[in-house]
Design a protein around this nucleic acid. Structure first.
Lengths: 115, 115
DNA sequence: GTACTATATCTCTTTTTTTGAATATGGTCA
DNA sequence: TGACCATATTCAAAAAAAGAGATATAGTAC
């Protein structure tokens, strides 16, 4: 994650963080505000540890940050400019920008509502 | 270069092609129009074969395309929208958009002008 | 034709990234 | 305090990408 920080390398690493389907999906889930990890887990259908790894990556790239609230940890995007990139990439590929996921103030994912 | 072409995978591979300093540099060199390979070679200071490999990659991603003129092969960008991405990434990283390289209709790089 | 030039391709090695499995941590609730 | 829950980290294996070297190709000039 280093090499000398030339402009091109900086830009390249910005793209690199975004060059992953799960990370893109995570950022899309965070479009309309913070979500708890269990939410992401439920929506992405991947192992918890795996999602946590990707969150760590996005976190260390300083694109998202977290906040604990009681039992859960909530993630949010701290660099909304990256949506410019995501949206532009969608436009280029003629993919519609995803509709915002209805905000659920209290987590509605199975893990959060069941028993 | 495959996996099923879900929207996220499509977007991810767009970012992936751009996630490389040399490829970014090549695209910047092509900002103001086509350039012959020797030009790129002179400007990038890398092995010919290496640049050719990167060109092949950009070509197979259908971002650039080539044209032969006499002895030389000229490359040009066929998807100018990618500059939206490059520029946005620069903005995010607070790097100025590179000034266009003065157009040289006849190649002025050492390889083209010497002897 | 042959020789040369510009560029491309192929193959192999090294490095990086991805992913999975196991385990750790640090709050919370009794 | 201890058990429990949500999430994080660590380590190793698998897969992908980066890069170097050697060689091929397709025009061009003679």
């Amino acid at each position: 994650m280093s090499t000398t920080a030339s402009p091109q390398n900086l830009i390249a690493s910005t793209f690199k963080v975004l060059a992953h389907p799960i990370r893109i999906a995570i950022l899309d889930l965070l479009r309309d505000g913070e979500q708890c990890v269990c939410h992401l887990e439920a929506h992405l259908g991947k192992r918890q540890a795996y999602i946590s790894q990707q969150l760590a990556l996005l976190r260390s790239a300083e694109i998202i940050s977290d906040r604990r609230d009681g039992m859960n940890i909530y993630y949010r995007v701290v660099r909304p400019e990256i949506y410019t990139l995501l949206d532009a990439a969608r436009t280029i590929n003629q993919i519609p920008i995803p509709a915002p996921i209805p905000r659920a103030n209290d987590c509605v994912c199975p893990k959060c509502t069941n028993e």
